[in-house]
Every structure is written in structure tokens, then in C-alpha cells.
Computed example of a mutant assay.
Amino acid sequence: MLGALALAGCDQREVEAPAPAPEPVVAPAPRIASAPPVPRPSSALRAARAKRAALQAEVASEAQNTQASQTMHGYFEGVEDMLTARGQLRRDDGAEIPLSVDQLTRDFVDIALFDEYTRNGAELVAGAQPSRLRRWAQPVRISVEFGDSVPPATRTRDRAQVHGFAERLAEVTGHDIEVTPGRGNFTVMYLNEDERRAIGPRLEEVVPGIPEADIEAIQALPAQNYCTVFAYSIGSSPLYSEAVAIIRAELPPRLRNSCVHEELAQGMGLANDSPDARPSIFNDDEEYALLTRHDALLLQMLYDDRMKPGMTAKTAEPIAREIAAELLE
């Protein structure tokens, strides 16, 4: 049974919306949390799963794009228009911005060695907490799934974006990362509002032993959160074994591709955000939409052989400084 450790986070992008966020906004989306071993399902848990299965069947039998999904689509189009009008969601890599060894070291420690969310029992609590260095050791195989609401042409574009970014991640990290047409260990799901609310049974299939709180958080994802990713390991291991990312199917193209970059990169082990990181997608200011030069360097540092899974910030900081100095020579 998978001992759940939710280690990568949701793209919690708080923005000034062009209109009030659509309801419901009922729960904070988790970013990083740990959980005890999954217990034997109780009668209440079995009842909750049965209810989710019934809801999933109901959604599948309804129209593909309900009023709730159409409302979300319009909302996110307005958000993207507003951000691009402000000069945000930049698509360059920020290469013109100088980086220092001190800055790159600080940002690595803040983003790779702190958690934005921790778990207090079944409750997810916001607030940066020291963590350990976590990453993948086994090959990463990314599978892409779509809700029925996503049309064929959009699926083709989405698959191409995930495939292209997986190749970029493999190049940057030196790790074995590929998109697979079969079952993977990193699942990317494109779901509309109704499909996401009913995704519980499928999540239990994709990640056996996934905590109930994680399912509930995904199904109740607030409108201010465009996408989310959870990565898991066995027991207390710092090595990832499974991950699942949720991307809203209502997102327009620029926000949609931005979610691919941030969630897949965070699912590799850069789990936190930092308001001081720039130029970076690991910053909630939405200045950049795509992986920057700064972010690629952080990934190189994370997968450098001198970095060992399980390291604390105190142990990793001098090694990060050494690597940063070499990268910026």
C-alpha cells in the first residue's frame, strides 16, 4: 500500500479577477503535505467512495459542457486577457536578467527544501516549513488523460505540449523522462469543472492509497487555482514513486501551457514557491508563463549527483552554492 506523501504543489495563483470567481470556492487547494499510512477503509470511507462513483456516472451521462464549466471558461479567458494586458504571462526565458550565486542558492533552498503546505492530521495547513530534498530516482513516465469534454483537436495540442515539455525536462535534468501512451507513474489529467468534481474513483485507481483529503481537495479546487500537482513516495522515502497533475480543461491556451510547465516542473521536486524568485514560474506573481533560464538552473541543481535525496536545507545549502557558482561561470 502506498504511504501517501503529497510533495508537490498546486499552482495557487491568486489574481485580481476581472469578475467575481465562480462558485463554489469551498476549500484551499493543497500544495505540500504529509500523511500517515492509509488505514483500512471504514464504512464512512466506503460510503464516500460509493457516492463519488455515483457522481462520476451521473457526470458521464450528462452534457459534456454544463453551465458551470461554461462559466469557468469565460472566467479564465478574462483572467488571461487581464494578465497579458498587464505584461504578465511572459513567454521569454528571462535570460536578460542577471543572476548571482547568492540569489540562485537562496532560491534553490527556498523552493526545493521548504513545503508550502503541511498536514496537521487530516487538515492541510499553509505556511512554509522546512522539508527534505525530494526527487525521482526511477524513470518518469508521463501519461495524459482527458475528460470527455476536451475535443480531439485540443487533445492533440495538449499532448504535443506535454510531450515537448517532457523532452525539455529530460534535457535539463539529465533524468529519464518520457511520455507514454500506456500507464505511467506521472499522470496529467485535463478535466472540466464537472469532471473534476467526480474524479475521485479514477484518482484511487491512478494512485492506490491516495489520502481522502487529497481527493477532496482536488474535487473542491478553488477557482483561483488553475491547476495542481501531488507527488507521492512510499512511506517516508524522499524518492517519488507516483504523481498526478490536474489541469482545468476550461483554461485558454496561454494559462493552459503555463500549467504544464509549472506543474510538471514542480512534480519533479521543486515543490515550493518563493516571492523572491525572479525570473521564475515558481512565483505567484504570474510574470512568467513558461520555464525560465533561472528555473532550468534550479532543476539542474536538483538533479546534480552531489545533491542527495533526504538532505536538509542546512546540509544542501553549501553544495547548492558550489553548483550555482559552476553553472554561472
Rank of each mutant, 00 (worst) to 15 (best):
G164N: 10
M268K: 05
A325H: 15
V101L: 04
P139H: 09
G267L: 08
S233H: 03
T292G: 03
A4L: 03
L328F: 13
E80L: 06
T105H: 07
A243M: 01
A47K: 13
H294C: 02
A245C: 07
C10N: 11
D107W: 12
R248C: 05
R132F: 04
A50K: 06
A85N: 08
Q219H: 08
D194L: 10
S43C: 02
P252E: 00
F108K: 04
I234H: 00
G147C: 03
M268F: 14
A223S: 15
A8P: 03
V206D: 10
Y75T: 14
C259L: 10
T180R: 13
R49Q: 13
E216S: 13
F76D: 14
F186H: 03
C10Y: 14
R52T: 02
D158G: 05
A324K: 08
S233Q: 08
Q56R: 15
T154M: 13
L270F: 06
P279N: 10
E58D: 14
E16I: 00
K51S: 14
G78C: 11
N65V: 06
F114S: 15
F230E: 04
P279T: 05
M189T: 00
A95C: 00
L191S: 02
P30S: 09
A271D: 10
A128L: 05
V59Y: 06
G184R: 13
V244K: 06
A47H: 10
G174E: 11
S61D: 15
V26F: 00
L191G: 04
T84H: 01
A313D: 11
R157L: 08
N272K: 03
V179C: 15
F282G: 14
P130Q: 05
M72T: 11
A166L: 14
P41M: 11
Q224K: 09
P24Q: 14
R135L: 11
V229W: 01
Q138V: 14
T228Q: 03
G121I: 12
D93A: 06
L83N: 08
S61G: 14
Y190L: 15
Q56D: 06
V260M: 12
